[in-house]
Design a binder for these strands. Structure first.
Lengths: 134, 134
DNA sequence: CTTATATCCTAGTTATTTACTAGGATATAA
DNA sequence: TTATATCCTAGTAAATAACTAGGATATAAG
């Protein structure tokens, strides 16, 4: 299940995109519009910076800017940045290593298929698809 | 993310299916083969009975029996029975009610689409697909 | 009718994760 | 110098996960 991290991160990015291309938007404004605390958004923004989705401008009139236009940022990248992973089971996460039951596991290929279906969907939607036309 | 409930429930049903059609299998055996405690499996079996996937036989030589043949039981039904839901976000669960942000929410349709992709996948795989041919 | 074996049912318990809040350090435009 | 931002690390309350525990109930076999 997707937690508030992923859900709020997506809403934040959509909010940025709505303010216009290359707009520098402070979290105070996003927090007010979205009803989420600045402090929590800060943590999510930091994850999105690490994932090269946002960049920041410090000081007065500072804020965050989308690195790429909304059409070039897909939702999968945002969710993976915020959640760590979109994998439906732990054994499919990057840092899990090799499962000791792997060779005898009859469900592994099923989970792999589910993971692919999820990735295909989330990577097939861009932020632009979710920003209402002005 | 799918918890041990869903993952173990699926492994248990596959284990039942491997013992043959209409076989009555006690949890003691499944527990031994799968490395999961009888007590935990009991709870999961109870959920699968409520969902009309298993039926039980009490007493010595008792156990659990698959109600339908493996080809007619899909994995989605097992996961929904064990997990309560396969929905990726809380607002898509049956008992959530109407979200107060629903009318202004720009992400709802995205989550709905993800939910449909997940349901289509899990409902498209049957237990028979996961039981290795003997 | 006793016994062994199974399911059934409800609680409790420990560890982890979630969803934040708190407090300050750092940068910078005016 | 000051106000306004981001940045960074900890802490914390509540919920969830992943079980274990203890017994009640049913039933086949002797």
């Amino acid at each position: 299940m997707i937690s508030t991290k992923g859900r709020y991160a997506l809403r934040m990015v959509i909010d940025f995109a709505r303010q216009g291309e290359e707009a520098c938007v402070p979290l105070r404004e996003v927090a007010e519009r979205q009803g989420i605390s600045v402090k929590y958004l800060e943590q999510l923004a930091s994850l999105l910076i690490q994932a090269d989705i946002l960049r920041s401008v410090r000081g007065p009139h500072g804020g965050y800017v989308l690195i790429r236009p909304p059409e070039e940022t897909n939702v999968g990248d945002i969710l993976r940045a915020a959640e760590g992973s979109c994998a439906p089971v732990a054994c499919l996460e990057a840092d899990f290593g090799v499962c000791p039951r792997r060779s005898e596991c009859e469900t592994f290929s099923f989970w792999e298929g589910l993971d692919k279906a999820i990735e295909a969907y989330v990577d097939g939607v861009t932020v632009a698809d979710l920003v209402p036309v002005h």
